[in-house]
Structure formats: C-alpha cells, structure tokens
Nucleic acid binder design. Structure first.
Lengths: 149, 149
DNA sequence: TACGCACATGGATGACATTGACCTCAAAAT
DNA sequence: ATTTTGAGGTCAATGTCATCCATGTGCGTA
C-alpha cells in the first residue's frame, strides 16, 4: 500500500462514484491501473466494501446513545457479543478498559426507546449495571451505516 | 420514503456497486426507476454520499480510543468544535449528557500516540479534565471512514 | 368526468468498467 | 555483465451499465 493507494482510497471515501478515468487523472495513472489497484485493495481486505453514508435523521434515528455496561457476574459473554452483533440498533460494541466492561453505541428514534433497549438487555440476563449517555449535538457526527434492513 | 426506498438503501449499504438492473430485480422496479429513486434520496439528503468501508488495521489505525473531556472554564467552545472537526484523528465528537461535556472517538496507530493527542488538546487550552478509554476488542466494530486524506 | 401530478416504463445513447495483449523497469539469478 | 522474472503500467477493444427522454398509467382532486 503506497501513497497512490492512499490517494485513491481518499478520493473514493469522499465519493465512491467517481470514475476510474477521473481518479486516474488525479493520481497520474491510466483508468485500468486504478481499477487494478482498487481490485487489489478490495481483495486484500483494506477496502471492506462500497457503501453509503446516510443521514440518521432522515432514517428516523435522531437520537444517538452511548451505554456503558457491566455484565452480570453469571452472564454468558459470548452470547452477549452475539446478541450485540445481531441487534439492529447497536451500531458499535467495544470491550473497553476502565471501570466498565463494554461501551455500546446505538441510535434510536427518540429517548423513550432507550428504556426498551435496556429492558431487553435485562431480560436476556446480560445487564449488571449500566450508565446511559445521550448526545445532545455532534460537532463531528461520524458516518452512519445501519447494519440490517 | 417508502418501503422500496428503504430496501434500495439497504441493498446499497451492503454493496453500493450493485447495478441498477440488479437492484431493480430485487425490488420489482425498472432500472431507470431505481435510478430516479436514488437520485431523489441523494437530492433530499437521506443519502449523504457513496463511500468506502475500510479496514482500520490495514490503514494502520489499530487502536480505538474514547476520550471523555471536560473543557477548561475559559475554553472557547466554538473553537474546540472547529478543532475537532478538522482534526484528522477525531472520528466523532459528541456533546453529551452526564458528568462530562464531550465524548471524542478517535483512532490511532498505537496507544503511545494518545499522549500526543492529549498534549495537543492541552496546548490549545481546551483540556480541563479528561478520561481515556481504550477498546480492547470490538464485537461490533462499526464502519470506518477516515475524514481527511 | 376531467384534470394534473407523481411515478413507472422502455429504448436510445454515450460513458464507463473491464479485459487481455503487450510494454517497461528493476531486482534477483546465473 | 547479461539474462530472467515478475510486478505494475499502457492502450485499445468490448460489452455492460448509467443516464436521459418521450411516453404510459394510476390516483387524488377540482
């Protein structure tokens, strides 16, 4: 992965619809060369996929929530990870250092929906303690790509 | 935005390179109709852009970090937001409820790099107190789309 | 009933990705 | 020093695809 690869990735990250000829012009390569590099980057896994960056509000997911979670002593950690991976609202789940075991990031349409989320966690006997943090605004929102649909 | 729009978005989110004919087959529309719907979704802002989902490790950004930040009393909040928006390492920055003012998410190549990040925050006179949390593993990693390049 | 709008269709057109044959350069082997 | 090898580039041919437009269709409204 050299500078040209990085440049190509940078251009595609901003606009994945740019033509190979266009990109080639920007990096000084023929279209087919750009194509071959993209093919290699995809094959190697550096590019995971071509996808969309969506507007959460337009998708009805206005509220961004972070939940710190300490699992129950007797919780099945593997089951929890699988649960998180398949949960449509959970955008990210990280095992973290510090006082809490997991940090979960999710989007809901409105705050009341968080209650249902936590209740479901409890029902599955995962939830020990938790702390919920809601984003009021986002100077740097990050990209939004739902999992399921 | 109806069910068909959602289905189209879902398909494109998984693979934004699928052809219009292919998508049309899945949703029961002619290619040109799918095209028109995508055009509308993009024009309305529901689709922000076509982009890439990258492998952070392949990009040399193995370490995921969350930093809780309380700004200095005399900090220029607007300047901080701008700083965050332009910082290449900061993937997200949210103004949040709770004991801390901001939650910042960033990726670095390795933990030692975090020190430089915090030092820079201090130099800009933003940083009051902070607490740093590092992700050990990520059952649900989320997508990765760097900002700059 | 008649009108108008929003959306779907299908075919023409040109742009584009894709492919393969060939070329170039540099590093490794003889 | 010369040959070999391989990675990566160019160019041109090919076929797929996005795009555009003229037309058709159903539905809510006057």
């Amino acid at each position: 992965m050299d500078d040209i690869d990085l440049k190509i990735i940078g251009l595609l990250a901003l606009d994945a619809k740019r033509s190979l000829a266009d990109i080639g012009g920007s990096v000084g390569l023929a279209p087919s060369s750009v194509n071959e590099r993209i093919r290699r980057l995809t094959a190697s896994g550096a590019i995971r996929r071509f996808t969309l960056d969506l507007d959460p509000a337009a998708m009805g997911m206005q509220t961004l929530v972070f939940v710190w979670i300490a699992l129950r002593e007797d919780a099945d950690e593997t089951a929890f990870r699988e649960y998180a991976a398949n949960h449509p609202l959970i955008l990210e789940c990280h095992h973290v250092t510090g006082a809490w075991a997991y940090l979960v990031k999710l989007r809901v349409s409105a705050p009341p929906e968080i209650e249902g989320f936590l209740a479901d966690l409890k029902e599955h006997r995962f939830l020990g303690r938790s702390e919920t943090v809601i984003a009021l605004s986002s100077p740097v929102p990050g990209s939004f790509t739902p999992k399921d649909m």
